[in-house]
Amino acid sequence: MADAKKKVTVATCSLAGCFGCHMSLLDIDERLIALLELVEFDRSPINDIKEISPSVDVGLIEGGVCNAENVHVLRQFRASCRVLVAVGECAATGGVPAMRNHYTLKECLQEAYVRGIGVAGAEIPSDPELPLLLDKVQPLHHVVKVDYTLPGCPPSADVFWMFLTDLIAGRDPVLPPSLIRYD
């Protein structure tokens, strides 16, 4: 990755997340310009590319794994990316979505679609278009091998900047305690 002539390719996506981590990535502000000198974005909500290329240098994944589609996307990223990064608390621990792990899926779906206030024609949706939910929300490292984790809800812009610039420069990115935050 130390080869400065060829840009590093970066893919990003959000699984069971809130896109807050992506917002934080954009929060590196004017450094985005410097970053874009070094990286080229592959699949990402930032450029709206929907499919990941077969060979990408770095994959940044926000959010945990809550449904079958998340599993497919995560597996695609793992297969395509040389370095896979869990970004934020949801990717690292399941985060807020994993708070549903206290309940059975039946309880969750009934609360949302059957017992919910103002629900008419109550039934649990079964459209094949909808990805099926896993019984528990899982952090990424339960499903695939993860190479790095950027903690934080979201990780600060400085975390993204430091991590990516270290990685691109060929250094092993190790966050100093001052950049490690889980909230």
Binding site: A68, T104, L105, K106, L109, I124, P125, S126, L132, L133, L134, D135
Partner: peptide, 8 residues
């Protein structure tokens, strides 16, 4: 996914 299959 078994529980979701059963519910849907």
């Amino acid at each position: 996914l078994a529980e979701a299959r059963q519910l849907t």
